[in-house]
Amino acid sequence: MTGPLNPLDYIDIIEEGGTRTNSVQSYSYLRDGLPAQIRVPVAPGRYTLRYVEEIEGRAPRILASQPLEVTDLTYALTAPETAMAGSTLSIGWTGPNAQGDYIDVIEAGATRTNSAAADDYLTANPLPLILPLTPGAYEIRYIAEGPEGRVVAMTRPLTVTPPMVTLTAPATLAPGAEFTVQWQGPANPRSWIDIVVPGNAEFSGELTYAYLDPASPQVTLYAPTEAGSYELRFVAEDMRMNRQVLARVPLSVAAGAVAPSDGK
């Protein structure tokens, strides 16, 4: 553009026919550098691009304007229709990938753009999200961050199913023995398998633990050094740090028990 380039001058984008010079969400001060960069509204439609002169003590003046049509953009979300609670879901996406855009998982029918069960910025494609631990009807959404705020640009339904978990390990171990636990269930790197005293309902105080590697169906642990009765647990955690014990298996530690061969 050309113009007086006063320190307070700016360009803005307003809906077609708009005449106000305040409460316009999309604007950029020219003092920030030329050529000017301005964020286009998310909603398609007809707009006007304007040069607004602003001098302290005077009413703002529109010195130049031109029509601007904001066209629709193709959005896409690719993911399974169902997935297990607490599992990691890979979501493919198509969108503008503008600064602030993100994908979330939220209960079906929700309209808010905060406090979702799971969300993350578009750091990868597909984008991995850890699903909530509560089964039910949810939606995957592409949230576009525009000058007018956050806009739900696209949704697709997702059914989160109850978790199915199994733990397989020796029933009796020698004190301090190394052993392998085979597991099946919702795989995410925040979840873990631990050993606790029977009846422990807390998510602390474990005697030993190992985080899950989603790429491996097993973890290696060491039995407690004192003989007695214990529990092996599968503990799941989601992106909001909600935690649930999804499985418990009794474990006995006895002096003189035969150690598992090859640590298994």
Rank of each mutant, 00 (worst) to 15 (best):
S115F: 09
A83S: 11
G86R: 01
A108D: 12
I106F: 12
E81D: 14
A79G: 02
A110F: 00
I91P: 09
D101P: 09
D101T: 07
Y75I: 01
L77N: 04
Y102S: 07
V105K: 07
N114C: 02
G100H: 06
N97E: 15
A79M: 00
A117N: 13
N114D: 14
G86W: 03
T113Q: 09
G86E: 02
A98D: 15
T111S: 13
G86A: 03
T82L: 00
S90E: 15
R112T: 09
A117K: 12
T94Y: 04
A108E: 14
N97F: 06
E107I: 11
E107K: 13
M84I: 10
A117I: 00
S115I: 02
G92W: 02
D101L: 05
I103Q: 05
M84F: 05
A108V: 00
T113E: 02
G95S: 11
Y75P: 06
A76I: 01
G86C: 03
E81I: 01
I91V: 15
A76W: 02
T88G: 02
G95V: 11
D104A: 03
S87Q: 10
V105T: 06
T74Q: 15
D101S: 09
G92E: 05
A117D: 12
D104I: 02
R112H: 12
A76Y: 01
I103Y: 09
T88I: 04
L77Y: 05
G109F: 06
S115M: 04
T111Q: 13
Y75D: 05
S90I: 00
G95T: 05
L77M: 04
T88L: 09
Q99Y: 10
L89Y: 10
N97T: 14
Y75H: 14
V105D: 04
A83C: 01
I91T: 08
I106N: 14
V105M: 04
T82E: 15
A110C: 01
T111Y: 02
T82P: 00
A110L: 00
A116R: 04
A85W: 08
I91S: 11
R112W: 08
I106P: 05
T111E: 13
T74L: 09
W93P: 11
I106S: 14
Y75N: 04
T111H: 07
G100M: 01
G109A: 08
P80Q: 05
S90G: 03
T82I: 00
A116S: 15
A117G: 13
G100E: 06
G95Y: 06
T113F: 01
A98F: 12
A76R: 14
A117Y: 03
A85Y: 08
A110N: 11
T74G: 10
M84A: 13
L77Q: 07
A83M: 05
T113A: 09
P96K: 14
G86L: 04
Q99N: 15
